[in-house]
Amino acid sequence: MNYVIAVIIGIIVAFVIAAIQKSSLTSVTMQHAAADYVKKGSVKFRIQTERFLYRKVEKTEKQQK
């Protein structure tokens, strides 16, 4: 079973490497945002709060050998 998983992972990694190299052929894309056009020094926060709400603890029993 480990060897089957190894073969699958090997093939996936091969496709990923080829896809990265192929992506260099594409250079035309819509811009996601307008980060280049933010006026320097204009970012000002007037509220930055982090308020604790509640806590949850989950526990799972270990498999006893």
């Binding site: 307008a34 056009y37 970012v43 930055q48 308020r51 604790f52 949850k56 603890v57 989950e58 526990k59």
Partner: peptide
């Protein structure tokens, strides 16, 4: 974890950010 259990503690927060920023010449 201890000898019998694995524990996951999740602390939930409400985070707020309010502010301003200026944009110029967005084409």
């Amino acid at each position: 974890e201890d000898s019998r259990f694995r524990y996951t503690e999740k602390n939930y927060y409400s985070v707020r950010r309010a502010g301003s920023l200026a944009f110029e010449h967005v084409p």
